[in-house]
Every structure is written in C-alpha cells, then in structure tokens.
Design a protein around this nucleic acid. Sequence first.
DNA 1: ATTATCCATGAATAACTGTTCAAGTATCTG
DNA 2: CAGATACTTGAACAGTTATTCATGGATAAT
Lengths: 117, 117
Amino acid sequence: MSNSEDKTVQAIGVDVPVSQILSVEKAQRMAEFFGVLGDPNRWRILSALALKELRVGELAEAVDMSESAVSHQLRVLRTMRLVSYRKQGRSVYYCLKDDHIFNLYQEASEHLDEPDD
Amino acid sequence: MSNSEDKTVQAIGVDVPVSQILSVEKAQRMAEFFGVLGDPNRWRILSALALKELRVGELAEAVDMSESAVSHQLRVLRTMRLVSYRKQGRSVYYCLKDDHIFNLYQEASEHLDEPDD
DNA sequence: ATTATCCATGAATAACTGTTCAAGTATCTG
DNA sequence: CAGATACTTGAACAGTTATTCATGGATAAT
C-alpha cells in the first residue's frame, strides 16, 4: 500500500486505486533483491554452490574469477541471505541458504523458453 | 553446460564438475532477465498493470513518473516480454503478458519475509 | 618466530543504467 | 490545414556497480 489517502487515477472508465500499487519502499526491496540476481557471475557462483559446498578459492577456480572478485560477490549474496558459510581453519565454506533460488531459476527459465507469440 | 571438456576442480575430496556450472551465455540471459526486475520503478509499473490495462499517460500519473521515463521503461519490459500492448487511436494500452511475474513476486516475498536465523 | 595460505576489505577505475530534455511521429480536432 | 494530444526516441548526464589492485587479518606450517 502506497498512500494513506486512497487517491485514484482515472482509466478506462474505472479508477485505478493507487493504494494498490507497490509502495516505493516495497518496490525498492524487490528491486534490490532481484538486482542481486542481475549479474551473470553471481549466477555462476550460485550454480556452482548448487552442486556442493565450496571454499572461496575453489569457487574462484570453478567460475574463473579472481578470489577477490568472488569474495566481493559473496558478500552481496550473503547480504541477501542467498548463501551461508562456515569457517574451518583458514578456509570458508559457502553453500546455498535455501532453495528459493531454484524456484526463481525455474520460473525464469520457463518465461525465457516461452515461444515469442 | 559450460565447457566441452569435462574439466573439474578439486573440492572437499570430490571433484566439482565445471560442466554443470551455468554457462556464461545462460548466466548472461538469466542476469539480463532478473536485471530488468532490479529497478523499483519497473516494479511499480508492473504492479499497476497487474490491476488493469493502462495507457502510458495513466501509468505515468499512477506511478508518478514522466511519460518519457515510463515509455523508456516499457520498452525494457517489452524486450523481456513482460508486457504487451495494443494501440487504439493515439493511445497505447499496456498490460502484463503472463503471470510468471506473479510467481516471481511471491517467491521473492517469501524469501524476503523469512526470519534471519 | 617466520613464512605461506586463505580470505576480506577499501579505494580507484571503467562500464552500465535511468532519468531528463529536446525533438520527432502519428492521430485526432476544429 | 493548423494545433493539440499521446507516445516514442536519441543524446547527455548523474548515479550506480563490478572488477582490479594493494593491503591487512587470521590461521597453519616449518
């Protein structure tokens, strides 16, 4: 809900209740989340972690990025709670946090695979 | 599938089949799609269109953006086939193309609403 | 203790993105 | 036809983002 007063805009005979449009705040949160999924290297990292728990260095090798770049991206993924980690000695093992990412992947795949009309 | 040769990286005793990591091309397509959902104003536009078919001008008023900005964003949404449109006189009516967007919204909401562990 | 390894972090830079502004096309009205 | 309305488009500019590079911290090995 966006506004306290129930403003409307006239459209096609009926009014559009502006209050049902996503609020700026909610839209912002959605955008931040999906924005994290808007980078190809983060998808490659996530897909690698979908196979098994991996250390930062292994990840870097697997997705062919520098350790620093991977580490930076892992921080972003951590912030959105898409991955979790555990430390063991000097290593840090990362893994997927839950399987929402699988559902999002599937849903997007379906959309992208749809015929062009 | 990423590489023709089935390269692996050693990890945790077992090997990680690099060939199962999302290819750069597939990752790129995923990122492009989700990147479109990585903007708050596009979410507001989509949520407005979820209520009913709207003209560009009505959309602009509803989401409080300039017509030009809305038009630019609608082109992006059209490119990703998230919206479709029909012309009627000088007006152009836009609507949501399918309901994948609803599922994505729901899935993301669930993720964002999860407790912090 | 010294050195090496693994990872995180901050700054800097290059690339990308979204808005505005100005102009252009198409349709309707008088 | 002239003017107004509805929308689109391209260029420019500001803000954001992802990488690299250099450095620092923590743990392990010698």
